[in-house]
Structures are given as C-alpha cells and as structure tokens.
Amino acid sequence: MCVVRELTKTYPAVRGRRGTPAAPEVRATDAVTLDIRRGEIFGLLGPNGAGKSTLVRQLTGLMRPDAGSVEILGHDIVRHPERAARILAYLGQESSALDELTVSLAAETTGRLRGLEVRRARAERDAVLEELGLTGLAGRPLKKLSGGQRRLACFAAALVGQRPLLVLDEPTTGMDPVARRAVWSAVDRRRAEHGTTVLLVTHNVIEAETVLDRVAVLDRGRVIACDTPSGLKEGVAGEVRVDLVWRESAPLHVPEVAALRDRAAESGRRWTLRLAPEEARAVVATVTGGAAFAALDDFTLATPSLEDVYLALGGAARQGLVRA
C-alpha cells in the first residue's frame, strides 16, 4: 500500500538573529523505512518534535525529501507529489483554511475540490455529517465551535470524497469521548466496507494501544521500533510500572524510600518506577504503611504501556507522550 524507503529530510541550520538564538541543523527524518499494508490502521507514535509531522508531510507530497522514496499504491510520490492528493485524504493539524466556513460548506467545498460534482458532494456531506453527529451544527461557522467540535468538522471534511488512504495527524485532539468514538467507528466502517488504510499520527499512548494494528515508534527522526502494540509491549512484559505521587515531597527520611530514589524517574511530585512484579509488591507494601504513607498522595500500579516501550527503547523525551 505505502512503501517508504530511507526517507531523509534535514532542516538547515538557522543563523541566530537578535532575539532568536541560532538553531543547528536538524535531521527531522533520518533514513525512515516503513511498509504500510492495505486495510490496516498504522500509527506513528512519538513525542513532540520526533519528526512525525515532517514524515507525514513528505508522504502527502507537501514536502520534498532530501533522499529516499515514497510509493503509495504503486505511485512514486517523490517524483509526482501532485498524485498524493488523488490517492489520500489528509487531516492536518491546522484548520485555518476552513475556519470561517460553516460546517456544512466546509465539508461540501472540500468534496467539490476532491473532484465530486455538486449533487454527489452534497449527498456525501449530508451522510458524513449525519454519521458523525454534526447535523445539528451544520450551519455554524467552524471558528464558533469548541476545539474538539472543530476538529470533528475537519475530520468530516476529510471523509467527503472517499479515498483509499486516510492520513490523520492527531485527529482526536481536544475531543470528548463521544466525538472520539464517532471518529473511530467512522474509520472502522470505511475499513470494513472499502478496505481503507489509515495512517495515524499520535502522541497519545492509550489511543495508540486501542486503535492501531501496527505502530512505528519515532524518536529524533528515526524509527526505533515497528510492530503491533502488544508485540512491542512483550519486550517490557516482565516489568510493572509504579507511579507514586507525594503530597509535598518524597519522605527521604524513610530508608526504603530513599533507596528507591535512584531508580525513579522524577517529575515534580511524581515518581515513576519500572520494577519486577515482586519488587513492585514490596514497594507498594512499603509506601502504603508507616511513615511513607503519611506523605503519599496517590499511587498506581499498571502493566506496561507503549510509553514504557518508548522509554525502554531509549526514547529521549521524558514528557512527550500523553496518556489520556
């Protein structure tokens, strides 16, 4: 479906000016190689700045790579970037082109510009708005909507004029659970009925685990792993994640707590530990009894997530992924 080989893009160094510091050369995508199969939901997971959006811009023909190849359904996108628009629908992070239109006109115009004739564009618009529960908002301008509703309206525009590949850059940002469900059931329906392939960019590990068939983990422009979410998690299956949140600060006067400090990733009042199950049990016993308990605000014990996979693989960012 989509074959990416050795894709490389380097942003040139920026000379410093007054008020802005100089930035060194950045390799935003570094020899990225991927194979996305027909009909799967393939994810790009990584913290902000990992190169996800840059990679997607190259796959959608919006940016020319310095080196490497992109082939979608047999078409060379590096040589013919204009063909990408006839194969895929892209939901970018920005809605400024549609902001002042009504939901209905945004969807209809997008369908028209995807080559549909008026009647067909209107029929598809009505069907998609109905499917996503947007009919009641059809007459409202996008910029008057909440962030999540606006995102859903842009998603609706992306669905009008069916395409075999959907490229969605963080589609559910700001959405409530109802809207999220609408998005994923719309995606599932298209996959079941038309074999639609989805390339999803996300930094949300929970979403990645629940909706993706396979995921490529990106870190500083490189693919550091690519597998099914559960396949990736097998690598860290022997560990349990313990999160401890202290009321004010950690009770370092308790020797067992002080001993844990070296192994904990600290972030404010939160300590995150990755431990073998029996160690985790001992830690929980320690912090839920005696002097440490008085200082404890909250704790959670969880099986590893893709975030742990990312960190175990040597991912550099400590804060870039979200669990929501």
Binding site: R37, R214, V223
Partner: peptide, 30 residues
C-alpha cells in the same frame, strides 16, 4: 503476536506483492 520488528521494518514482501499484482492503482478524479 507473531510480527517481528525487523521483519516489519525490512521485509517488503506483502507490499511488494500487492504492487506487482495490481500495478499502480487508479487515481481519484482531478
């Protein structure tokens, strides 16, 4: 789960087969 990361990264087999069997797919309308 049977998928191996190295295979997913380097084994182009499924996609390559798909390509040779079907040739370039039809493009959507302009």
């Amino acid at each position: 789960m049977s998928a191996v990361p190295a295979d997913a990264l380097h084994g182009a087999a499924p996609a390559a087969e798909e390509r040779h069997a079907a040739g370039p797919a039809d493009l959507g309308p302009r």
